[in-house]
Design a protein around this nucleic acid. Sequence first.
DNA 1: TTACATGCAAATAGTTTGCCGCCAA
DNA 2: TTGGCGGCAAACTATTTGCATGTAA
Lengths: 147, 147
Amino acid sequence: MDTETDNRLETLIAKLRERDCRITPQRLALLEMLVHTDEHLSAAQIYERLVKRFPTTSLATVYKTLSLLKDLGEVTEISFSDGDTHYDASNPTPHTHLICTHCHRITDAPYIAAPDLTEELAALTGYKITGRRFDFYGICPDCQANM
Amino acid sequence: MDTETDNRLETLIAKLRERDCRITPQRLALLEMLVHTDEHLSAAQIYERLVKRFPTTSLATVYKTLSLLKDLGEVTEISFSDGDTHYDASNPTPHTHLICTHCHRITDAPYIAAPDLTEELAALTGYKITGRRFDFYGICPDCQANM
DNA sequence: TTACATGCAAATAGTTTGCCGCCAA
DNA sequence: TTGGCGGCAAACTATTTGCATGTAA
């Protein structure tokens, strides 16, 4: 476990405490899983992984906890064409996603310097721009190797 | 009705005929609506508008027709955090979306020249990149005026 | 004429909610 | 001790499907 991950976990716990939310074993397990993966999992995927360690965990609790974290601004919901909502618990910095259309894995893309088009777009359209989302679709190296 | 819109409609009709699909009044009405708007509507939104002119139209038919057009590669499904799937019937050229977080309107952004990061990203990650999606979120001019 | 499309209703799938017993603080 | 939390099941919402009837070609 690296320090950055530890810090992120501590931040999440602190945010919950600020709101007088209890740190239950289920919530802790969910938080740990979120900060230890760079994938962006769906509620069902999170539940499947959690239930291995906490057989009594329920899907409803997963949804409730994710909703709570969303309200705290600590996770972002992203919808994909697979019909499921996925959750992004990385730092709320704008970043780009890589989505494998074969195994449906969703990860963050490495940073590439590029001009920020926000101001230009705002000037052209009159929109007051507050956020953005960039996704690239393709086949991940693992899937390419197994085809 | 401008020529470009007309052409798009003719293209869609021709594609359907190629597949020996019938041009029913319901399908024609849906196609006309799709090519006459630059918004990206959900199935429910499309149904609401259609039913004004075709009171007998059903939501199931809207879904079936959209699915057909998707198979033909003439519309693209895009999921947003409102939980609904929206449909993009514009030409299948990669483009950027502008999404108003207030009225939930989704339109195409004007083209802005920018470096294509696809190759760089492919080289860095090993992904074979096949597509992309860029969305900007914000408040549209109409909503700003009414706030 | 006839295979395909429509439209209703039922089925499915993801997500949310109500409620009661339980446990973190 | 106690109010928030967990877990079950029911409710909800978006989407898909089955089937009998209707209709485009």
